[in-house]
Design a protein around this nucleic acid. Structure first.
Ligand SMILES: [Mn+2]
Ligand SMILES: [Mn+2]
Ligand SMILES: [Mn+2]
Ligand SMILES: [Mn+2]
Lengths: 221, 221
DNA sequence: TAAATAGATTAGACAAGTCTAAATAATATA
DNA sequence: TATATTATTTAGACTTGTCTAATCTATTTA
């Protein structure tokens, strides 16, 4: 069965929404994520349902079938492997790769993605710290905290970001924060939820609530 | 101006046909190359003409404008660079890469193609010996002979192929012929235009007229 | 629980890219 | 040169993916 790029994008969107709200993904939320109007989404849901890629009942929301989930995971695998290639091999910065990966993720070839994986040394995470599903669609889910949940004086290492926009990633670059950065929470300002941190070279930095909830960290043991 | 993948394929086809028959490329020949029916081609020619990518007069055939030629060359550049990547980096064989490159050639990013070029060491030729246009669309045209034009006892090196099908490339593989192979023409059989060759390890091989006209060689000095 | 609101679906339209059948133009041939 | 053949274009239709406007359903709230 042939799956179009458009259909792949819907499956990926449903997969992503399901990670936040497992049951009954709404037409509206899919439309918002893909920047497509609801009636268009409605039509596509019928089509994906006919292809047995989703479970769909009118007005009841939608859920991926296991076939649909596998396909979504394959698209995500390709997206993240290509992003890794672009950063590791072609020396792009982490804020530059998403758009290219949005195109590359639709290249059809089982063999290509597996060779690419091998060429990159079977990476487990992409340049934004997101896990790369393996060839069987298995994905390592990491239960790490975001920086806003960290106690004062705790030391942590940056392992990912939740916001992938150019603006956010650029802001982190300018602040000298990247994957692997070691940070210490010096002070929490309860008034606005912001924090004061110190980096490994003792430099202090003030980060807003908005920013720290998008930085994923693990304990620096 | 946005050029769709479909439009890119038409431009590439016209470019390729123009190398054989510079003036007045026919609707029919484009259709045959792209496996698309003539009326569809006719429609597209109007569209490409409106976009000033081709010069087109009804019933008079078609010609690329310089804008159209630049775009065609960019697509060819991308195709050949990706093929080189697939063979050099991902270890695909030369008969396995064309279909993937047909998809990859449409990835939109000026920066990506130039970084890829650099990553590959600015290769001048692709895995089939075809020249890779540079960033300005300049292409090195090589005036090499095909093996059927070589005198008896001359020694040559294989620098390209004219038939890119899996079947032909596979046949060459099985015969131990690849880019860089050194061959000596031992005998020409005038009856059927076939030849007897000797490879660098003195092994003899009989090649049909059909085969040798698709092998591009240069003199082995 | 009845009305208001939000969300979802249906209806009808459009663009891109494709097709077949019919009409027309150009070219070859008798 | 008149006719036959071939190539091209026009006409009309279909599919995919999108939209807006209208209608229907579900949920919230007074
Ligand atoms: Mn991305
Ligand atoms: Mn990513
Ligand atoms: Mn090719
Ligand atoms: Mn090639």
């Amino acid at each position: 069965m042939i799956i179009s790029s458009t259909e792949e994008n819907y499956l990926k969107a449903i997969y992503k929404l399901a990670k936040i709200q497992p049951k009954g993904i709404s037409t509206k939320s899919i439309g918002e994520l893909l920047k497509i109007k609801s009636p268009t989404v409605s039509d596509m849901l019928k089509k994906l349902s006919d292809k047995k890629l989703i479970k769909y009942e009118k007005y009841k929301g939608v859920e991926l079938t296991s076939k649909g989930e596998s396909l979504a995971l394959l698209v995500i695998r390709k997206h993240r492997l290509w992003e890794t290639f672009l950063v590791e091999k072609l020396e792009f910065k982490w804020d530059e790769v998403h758009e290219m990966a949005e195109q590359l993720e639709h290249i059809r070839s089982k063999e290509l993605v597996n060779r690419l994986d091998k060429f990159l040394g079977n990476p487990k995470f992409d340049p934004h710290g997101d896990p790369i599903p393996n060839n069987e669609g298995k994905i390592e889910i990491r239960y790490d905290d975001t920086l806003d949940q960290i106690k004062t004086n705790a030391e942590v290492i940056v392992v990912g970001v939740k916001d992938h926009t150019k603006e956010f990633l650029n802001y982190l670059d300018k602040s000298g924060i990247q994957l692997g950065s070691k940070l210490k929470v010096v002070e929490r300002i309860s008034y606005d939820g912001s924090i004061e941190i110190q980096n490994s070279s003792k430099k202090k930095l003030h980060l807003s609530a908005q920013v720290i909830k998008n930085i994923v960290v693990k304990n620096a043991n």
